[in-house]
Nucleic acid binder design. Structure first.
Length: 585
RNA sequence: CGGGGCUUAGCGCAGUGGUAGCGCAUCUGUUUUGGGAGCAGAGGGUCGUGAGUUCGAAUCCCACAGCCCCGACCA
């Protein structure tokens, strides 16, 4: 490819809207252009790079007996009603009507369509296990797209779905998929990534893992152990918090004028925040208040709370708070109207004693609250059902590890893939069965496996770049070699470069040649911005000595001078060696 | 959905009531050529949209839209 003909030009100045380095370089390098918020088009450089990512992904999926399919992006209301998700998913799903006003959706994931396949095609235990995957566009009307290609409303995902006759078979396959993912990310040149246990969401199964690229610009917070292999998304990370536990002493009401925050309360009472109890309020779709109590120095994780309640949560409205008898700023566990609210206590509260809590009375708090003595023992059975215990607190850096007790640390990460245990969540609701050996209909046990294909390119750039541009691994770079031609009109410079270009292409090497009559500085700057890992520079100065210059984009070795008549062989060998760095077998 | 910011040429920006400008990019010519050159010339803008105030609006008022960031949210 000649650079002068490549669609997509480089720009010197950073587009104003781009914050993340990956976004800046993808725009400046002429990889992508934005159409609308969260909607981007891929120009040739990005398209080539992403095609390579897809290709590696297909190889790894095929290795674990995946069969590629293509399911439609358009879905019908009927199919999504079967799983219940047409109604359960809110505004995140794009919805539209066809010409006859029939409601349709743009699929944001493909569990429903794949079950549609499975229930007519996978009807015998003899066909199991089976895995189908696709590389397909997904549509999600994100509340807030961000970071260029990091969070999009339309993007490409590799999604895979496996069907099994037993739980054991699924678990076995799950770990094979995990291994395939590790291989895929290594082959695409990802370096600093981990798999962490993650939240399953409202519709997940028993367990799941997220694959995270560890970069400071990541939008997820991960909790990892400084000593052992414990790694989890903060949404589910736990810690055995050490909670004060003393003999219970009598409850006492204290006047606390204008004290509304935990920090103020602790200061006012001259106690540590960890001996206070914080109330965090949400509400359900049914307008019931949800009050979550957690030790004052900790934070509630909304995902965990959702898990305990198995309900969607929304910010609590003032009237809902008031109806339940809660008083913002002094919300406490005693005096709440349990017919109007659900209450969740974190394990730090049930395990401890003598907490300072709100009195549900403006300007007052209670000292020495003890959950069992002051609340649970006073309740009838119906009231007890309105109260749940659980682990809803966020583990933080410095807290003890749940596995080994050493200190945990926090890291930021970009989610680049995930694998989910789905169980029979979809096969059951959508009546998807196979006949077992005894001829009895059984629901398939399912797993699903996603990779954010479009997101991987910016994620790789986030972890691999310098101040001048991306440093792309050869396995995902749009071309193998970038040739600069300086002073091309002088002597035989241009024709020598073109002859080398032709010979390399003939050898199957993908070459981008800068055929523009640009100053050297300009050519080098653009080459840095495109990020191709290998570079050859033709110039009269070196050709006078029958040599050309070779360098790596990442400057891992000093530039070398190569005799012109050896350059094709040299590049072939170097390209092969470069691919070998990312090869696993 | 809350909070903040922005919207003038392809990109980055200036322009506080008198009919639109700079740099880069593009095109022509010319001189240059190892880290984003110089000179000469050219093309390119319903100033986000709508409605007002005014003799006159990019500029003042009102409404709306789009985009970005933080938060909420994120199967």
């Amino acid at each position: 490819m000649f650079l002068s003909k490549l669609v997509g030009r480089t720009v010197k100045e950073t587009p104003r809207d781009a914050e993340l380095v990956s976004h800046r370089f993808l725009l400046r390098g002429g990889f992508v252009r934005q159409y609308a918020s969260g909607v981007y088009g891929l120009l040739p450089l990005a398209q080539r790079s992403i095609a390579k990512i897809e290709s590696i992904c297909r190889e790894e999926m095929n290795r674990i007996e995946g069969q590629e399919v293509k399911m439609p992006c358009l879905g019908t209301k009927e199919l999504w009603d079967e799983s219940g998700r047409y109604g359960a998913i809110g505004k995140d799903m794009f919805r539209l009507n066809d010409r006859n006003e029939k409601p349709m959706v743009l699929c944001m994931t493909h569990e429903e369509p794949v079950v549609f396949f499975a229930r007519t095609e996978l009807t015998s235990y003899r066909q199991l296990p089976a895995m189908m995957y696709q590389v397909q566009t997904k549509f999600r009307d994100e509340p807030r797209p961000r970071g260029g290609l990091i969070r999009l409303r339309e993007f490409t995902m590799k999604d895979a779905y496996s069907f099994h006759a037993s739980e054991e078979d699924l678990q076995n396959y799950y770990w094979r998929a995990h291994e395939a993912y590790m291989r895929f990310f290594k082959r695409t040149g990802c370096r600093n990534f981990v798999s962490v246990m993650s939240d399953n969401g409202m519709f997940g199964g028993k367990f799941s893992h997220e694959f995270m690229m560890l970069v400071p610009s990541g939008e997820d917070t991960l909790i990892t152990c400084t000593n052992c292999d414990y790694k989890a998304n903060q949404e589910i990370a736990t810690s055995p918090f050490t909670t004060q536990s003393a003999n219970a002493i009598a409850v006492a009401e204290v006047e606390t004028p204008n004290i509304k925050t935990i920090a103020d309360l602790a200061k006012f009472l001259k106690i540590d925040a960890s001996t206070t109890c914080k109330a965090v309020m949400f509400q359900t779709r049914e307008q019931e208040l949800v009050v979550a109590f957690v030790r004052g120095d900790l934070d509630v994780v909304e995902q965990k709370l959702k898990g305990v309640l198995q309900k969607e949560l929304f910010p609590a409205k003032d009237e809902v708070i008031a109806a339940a008898g809660a008083v913002a700023g002094s919300t406490g566990p005693l005096g709440l109207n349990l017919s109007k609210c659900l209450v969740v206590f974190d394990k730090t509260i049930s395990a401890g004693s003598n907490f300072a809590v709100g009195a549900n009375k403006a300007g007052y708090h209670l000292k020495n609250f003890n959950l069992e003595r002051d609340l649970l023992s006073q309740l009838n059975d119906w009231q007890k059902q309105r109260i749940k215990m659980g682990d809803i607190a966020a583990a933080r850096a410095g807290d003890p590890c749940p596995q080994c007790g050493h200190a945990l640390q926090e890291t930021r990460g970009i989610e680049i893939g995930n694998i989910f245990h789905l169980g029979t969540r979809y096969s059951h609701s959508m009546n998807c069965t196979y006949s077992d050996q005894a001829g009895v209909a059984q629901n398939h046990v399912m797993g699903c496996y996603g990779i954010g294909i479009t997101r991987l390119l910016p994620a790789i750039i986030e972890e691999s770049h310098d101040e001048r541009g991306p440093i792309l691994p050869i396995t995902v770079a749009p071309f193998d070699v970038h040739i600069c031609v300086l002073n091309k009109k002088e002597g035989t410079t241009e024709e020598t470069a073109l002859a080398t270009y032709a010979a390399l292409k003939k050898a199957g090497i993908e070459v981008l040649l800068d055929d523009r009559d640009e100053k050297p500085g300009s050519q080098f700057a653009d080459a840095d911005l495109v990020g191709i890992p290998l570079r050859i520079i033709f110039s009269p100065r070196n050709l006078n000595e029958n040599k050309v210059e070779f360098k790596f984009r990442d400057n891992r070795t000093p530039a070398q001078m190569i005799p012109v008549n050896e350059v094709v062989d040299f590049v072939k060998k170097t390209v092969a060696a470069e691919y070998q760095r990312y090869a696993l077998d």
